[in-house]
Nucleic acid binder design. Sequence first.
DNA 1: AGATGTGAAAGTTTTCACAGCC
DNA 2: GGCTGTGAAAACTTTCACATCT
Lengths: 208, 208
Amino acid sequence: MDRASASTVTRLSSYYRALGELGKEGMDTVSSDRLAERAGLTSAQVRKDLSFFGNFGRRGLGYNVAKLRRKLGEILGLTQRWRVALLGAGNLGHALFAYKAFQKQGFVIEAVFDVDPRKVGQKWEGIGIRSIAELQQVAAKTPFDIAIIAVPERAAQAVAEAAVAAGIRGILNFAPVKLTISPQVALRDVDLSIAMESLSYALVKLLP
Amino acid sequence: MDRASASTVTRLSSYYRALGELGKEGMDTVSSDRLAERAGLTSAQVRKDLSFFGNFGRRGLGYNVAKLRRKLGEILGLTQRWRVALLGAGNLGHALFAYKAFQKQGFVIEAVFDVDPRKVGQKWEGIGIRSIAELQQVAAKTPFDIAIIAVPERAAQAVAEAAVAAGIRGILNFAPVKLTISPQVALRDVDLSIAMESLSYALVKLLP
DNA sequence: AGATGTGAAAGTTTTCACAGCC
DNA sequence: GGCTGTGAAAACTTTCACATCT
């Protein structure tokens, strides 16, 4: 099996979400047409994407909502529990910590780290904030799968390196910097400036 | 001039950022090679992207850092001030409000709205939180360019519609929902679940 | 009849490679 | 010699359209 493209995987997430909604609405079965409508795509795209991972549908009938959702969950790795370290306990870190949707999907924030000595020692819902210097030794006991980087720009590269040294295998980076790390580690950027700039570009273009 | 692809615009933002750094480091001039290195791309890509908007370089020499940065700023619409309404005053809203990098780039949060009556009336750095019901009339006086949607999933569609009705021309959506709005309005999604799921997919794939 | 799964076609994006200017 | 700007080629992605199965 060849590797699925990044956009295919992104769309898989949309299908997964749409199937959750459809399930709640009591639908048993869904056609590629209807699923596409929900996800804002074309039915051909849906069928191509899904067929990449297997034959999940039944001709003449469509896809079983619950079964397909389960399958996509497996493919996306949502059936397991991921141990997450939150690096950075500022405003953004706090918002991410409070965002319960993560936990529901199996991404469990097990520990919170910060450099600021005034933050270290505070507790968030019973989880103590530790110094980033401790990351290595904490990870030695209970290794983390994923690090969320929510520190300021200037600290991000060093923090990323510390995370990689501590054995983390994936990073979700919120700092507006291009991190340079081992290609062994999966990296996804959430870059608010870039999103805003792409908006402002669109507004400048589409304008009186 | 044909329309630049979304990925070209995203890369433009990276170049813009890289040029800022290079400028601070005292570089006057930069080659596509070096700029590509900073942005994590190839030099051919850099040249193609830039050449789409004009001939900014000089053969044999490279690009003038300051001048190119200024040009890209213009193209991206960063020379003007954008009036932003923040919709949703929860944890995420607060983090975004406190994120000063936005203001620096010309995205100025002029007003904050929330549905929760307990939030309404509070003040953040002198800006009072208003009821979303007031959005229309506030916008009638001082129209907003961009709305940032940072409300829970279930409220997002209604809030987006209110924003569009109030004349907003661009939306940055943090709610994990596919918003259905007029194609006249530019929409960018920042979807944390999708980013996390793409990470977990990568970890499942790349694993012992 | 209804809807999937999929090769082939069309469209888009990236990379190559080099002519052309500094 | 160095480095851009750009057509042409290669790679990739999406859409089409239909044979195939229920």
